[in-house]
């Protein structure tokens, strides 16, 4: 599946990879767990890159609190407060990645990786939904209505 966005991983490929990690058996997940944790973080970045490029922006290469994912989120949320509905999802992805990297041999690592994959999947679904619904206007908190400039109902 093509996104039509140059240099951006196709949505289906991102989701397939997330689903594959989430579905991997515990013993297999324990192998190269730190690499997989970094991969999930990179997939999160790719998801936000899709959103930014779809809106004509160049995804930042900068980091926030040491993570590009958080910088990308901040970039995307600028002027679009409803985008903050995925702020904690991004932070949870970073948190799980850190937890895994801190002690990859921990017995909880496979479960943590699976949860990280589910968090990444939520980010992908959220962005996908917003991309599809963009033409319908915002329905979330701090909405930016389609007709805010011609709204005259209170006048």
């Amino acid at each position: 599946m093509m996104t039509g966005l140059p240099g951006v991983a196709p949505e289906a490929a991102i989701m397939e990879r997330i689903d594959a990690i989430a579905a991997t058996r515990d013993d297999a997940l324990a192998v190269a767990a730190a690499v997989r944790a970094d991969e999930l973080l990179a997939l999160g970045e790719a998801i936000l890159e899709r959103w930014l490029q779809a809106h004509g922006a160049t995804p930042t290469r900068q980091t926030l609190e040491g993570f590009r994912l958080l910088a990308l989120h901040r970039q995307a949320a600028k002027g679009d407060p409803g985008f903050n509905a995925c702020r904690e999802t991004c932070r949870e992805l970073v948190y799980h990645r850190n937890l895994i990297r801190l002690d990859a041999a921990h017995p909880e690592t496979p479960r943590r990786l699976r949860l990280a994959a589910m968090v990444a999947r939520h980010l992908a679904l959220f962005i996908d939904g917003r991309l599809q619904a963009a033409a319908l206007g915002e329905f979330c908190c701090s909405s930016r209505p389609l007709r805010e400039h011609d709204a005259t109902l209170h006048e």
């Binding site: 509905a85 999802t89 968090v119 939520h122 939904g129 619904a133 329905f139």
Partner: peptide, 16 residues
Amino acid sequence: FPLRTACCGGAHTLSD
């Protein structure tokens, strides 16, 4: 629960 504040998709219920 890592998705405690994540979107439930309520806004898309009718549109998608």
